[in-house]
Design a protein around this nucleic acid. Structure first.
Length: 658
RNA sequence: GGGGGUAUAGCUCAGCGGUAGAGCGGACGACUCAUAAUCGUUUGGUCGCAGGUUCGAACCCUGCUUCCCCCA
């Protein structure tokens, strides 16, 4: 039996899941489901990377042991994949003994083979980035030896003799054209390997960073996170069944990764495996990024698309369909909600869903919902059969080359052909003249639909289940051959499979329409610096309030509309290219919020971190510089000075203010 | 500074030596079984710029430029 082993990167446990994570995992899932459909034995692995400084820092900030912290956040990814109906076979966490054990075994083995040596290094170390900087980087980042961001360190470390595998690696890449895909990425790596390859530092002294896997030969050190993380791809297999299990899957192993981590997968990883006595994986597939307004998606730009929100609004299957359909392998794609809605409407609602709906109605009206026996059929029907069979073959070709977007387009062509066929034959007219002919038409339309549904089932498994019910079929009817639709089955209730969605573009017009709140909020960056009268004006929603009549007194009920709460600032950073805005992540005790505040001219980000502040909690979210701001902080301003409001004594974060 | 990718219709992309393509969008028409759907017709491009090779270049070569990635 053919096999297929696919992995996603293990995601950093501290990261909040975003579109990129959802995309990679969805692609891996869809590829796995296709291979299953084609009869492959499959293994699909994903997981979380839980070691390293960032997890440690996050735990410290919360004042909890790092292991506890990791336990608390690790389920976030698992829950998301469950919600997204992802069919991974296993979920590995790098803090699990089954993983750490293998990492130590491999380290020990490489060490004993004389492939690890110790050396000392000195230089400036950037704390936030966990790495040493070159002189030039120091200069570029504007650091001096006294900068708080860097410390001068001299330390001994362990190095893996990666350099000695350079020639072997070049040869391997050249001899295996499909090892790195797409082709452009392969050339990139080969270009990189023209320069001498260095050795790889694989240790971190515990004095500096202790959250990691101990080096078995020197317990004063922990293992470098990448070395640790990469081994997940084999640790699960080795733990499960030793070399036998590994040998079963490894020859058919594929790593699906983002282009940003290609270097470690194409250079570190094969050489590590080689040193440990294993073969490189069969292939690396590097995909592009989802760009938003052509900018890289990043937390600091605040343009992080939250997959959960979009899924709730548009449905999981439609969302996955869009992701798979709209990115071509290897290239970056622009994400826009508009493009997504258009894609879902035209492909899924209009072409695919509506085909089922119109056929179902005809079937019920003229055949009491029972799938008719097809007649012999003529040229048109022969053409449909030929197209169906061609589509089966082409889709499989595309899938085996990881070209899922092309595969989906192929299926949609088949669906469009079926809609056209109905216009050509007009079965609603045949209902009055020739029921046999109508039956032949309906059977052919339904057979195309069944075939298309089968070929889409890896992408929209939930909806396919629904549509099978509507047609009175089940999973066994998802056969990959023309003609498998059994006449005589009785259809179930009709339902709209994919509803159409309207996309409302947020235009300037609309912004002005909702003037009372919107205008006020939109000016928040300026306003916050002069925030005194803000809450009242906004909560009341009264433009008049801003005009400040002499006796603009309000009742207690007006004040009660404003929810003021105590928040703790967890993170703060400047919004790039602005001199007034800070982006804050605050805790309200039970939830986290992102707030953009116009206080950068008065406060350094560090001054606010850890402080308790007062925020308006029930303010409508608004985007400032493309960053969502959910709430605003209170500050007093006088004579060009500004002071952020803070409670006089210690109170619980999230406490209500009245 | 070096390496690599990318640039084709309003949008998303395919084509990679032989008369510029698809889907979406726009316009017009047809139909009415259907989710303002579907079907047909149509609109629409000095293929980033400038040179070169060739009988012939979107495609090969050289040099620029845009955006992006990697390395230093």
């Amino acid at each position: 039996m053919s096999r297929f082993y696919i992995t996603t990167p293990i995601y950093y446990v501290n990261d909040e899941a975003h579109l990129g994570h959802a995309y990679t995992t969805t692609m891996a899932d869809v590829l796995t489901r296709y291979h299953r459909l084609y009869g492959y034995e499959t293994f699909f692995l994903t997981g979380t990377d839980e070691h390293g400084q960032k997890a440690q820092q996050a735990a410290d900030k919360k004042g909890m042991p790092v292991q506890d912290y990791v336990e608390s956040v690790a389920p976030r990814f698992q829950d998301l994949w469950k919600k997204m109906n992802i069919s991974n076979d296993d979920f590995v966490r790098t803090t699990e003994p089954r993983h750490t054990k293998v990492v130590q075994d491999v380290l020990q083995r490489i060490y004993e083979a004389g492939l690890i040596y110790s050396d000392s290094y000195e230089g400036f170390y950037e704390v936030s980035d966990e790495r040493f900087l070159t002189d030039k980087e120091m200069e570029e980042k504007g650091y001096t030896k006294d900068s708080p961001e860097v410390v001068f360190l001299q330390e001994k470390n362990y190095f893996f003799k990666m350099s000695q595998y350079q020639d072997w690696l070049i040869q391997h890449i050249e001899a295996n054209p499909n090892f790195i895909r797409p082709e452009g990425r392969r050339r990139e790596i080969l270009g990189f390997l023209k320069q001498p390859l260095g050795d790889l530092c694989i240790s971190r002294p515990k004095s500096r960073m202790s959250w990691g896997i101990d080096l078995p030969f020197d317990t004063d050190y922990v293992c470098y996170v990448w070395f640790d993380a990469l081994l997940n791809y084999i640790s699960v297999l080795l733990d499960k069944g030793g070399d036998e299990e590994l040998n079963k899957w490894w020859p058919e192993s594929h790593h699906l990764i983002g282009k940003d981590i290609l270097m470690v997968h194409a250079v570190y990883w094969p050489t590590m495996l080689k040193a440990a006595g294993y073969e490189p994986p069969k292939s690396l597939i590097a995909h592009g990024w989802w760009l938003i307004d052509s900018a890289k998606m990043s937390k600091s730009k605040g343009n992080v698309i939250k997959p959960l929100e979009l899924m709730d609004r548009y449905g999981i299957d439609a969302f996955k369909y869009f992701l798979v359909r709209d990115m071509s392998l290897g290239l970056d794609s622009n994400f826009s909600e508009k493009a997504m809605v258009e894609r879902m409407n035209s492909d899924l609602a209009n072409d695919f869903g509506n085909l089922l709906n119109r056929t179902h109605k005809l079937l019920v009206k003229s055949f009491d919902g029972v799938v008719p026996e097809p007649g012999a059929g003529g040229e048109l029907e022969a053409e449909l059969k030929a197209l169906g069979e061609k589509t089966l073959a082409t889709v499989k070709e595309h899938v085996l080359e990881f070209k899922l977007h092309a595969a989906l387009e192929e299926v949609l062509q088949l669906v469009r052909r079926a809609n056209k066929y109905m216009e050509q034959t007009e079965p609603w007219k045949l209902a009055k003249t020739d029921l046999n002919a109508m039956g032949t038409v309906l059977w052919h339309v339904l057979e195309i639909f069944r075939l298309a549904a089968t070929l889409l089932s890896p992408v929209i498994p939930g909806k396919v289940e629904n549509l099978l019910t509507q047609l009175g079929l089940d999973q066994n009817n998802l056969e990959l051959r023309w003609g498998a639709l059994p006449p005589g089955t009785r259809a179930g209730e009709a339902q709209v499979l994919f509803p159409r969605h309207e996309y409302k573009e947020v235009t300037d017009m609309e912004n002005t329409e909702t003037k009372p709140e919107q205008t006020a909020v939109a000016e928040a960056p300026k306003a916050e610096a002069t925030a005194e009268s803000k809450p009242e004006a906004q909560a009341a929603g009264q433009p008049e309030a801003a005009e400040a009549e002499p006796d603009n007194l309000i009742g207690i009920e007006d004040f009660a509309k404003v929810q003021l709460r105590v928040a703790e600032v967890l993170e703060a950073e400047r919004v790039p290219k602005t001199d007034k805005l800070l982006r804050l992540i605050v805790s309200l005790g039970d939830e986290k919020r992102q707030i953009v505040a116009g206080v950068a001219a008065y406060y350094e980000p560090e001054q606010l971190i850890g402080k308790q502040i007062v925020v308006v909690a029930n303010l409508k979210p608004v985007k400032l510089r493309g960053i969502e701001s959910h709430g605003m902080l209170l500050a007093a301003k006088s004579e060009g000075k500004l002071s952020v409001m803070t409670p006089l004594g210690e109170v619980a974060t999230g406490a209500a203010i009245s």
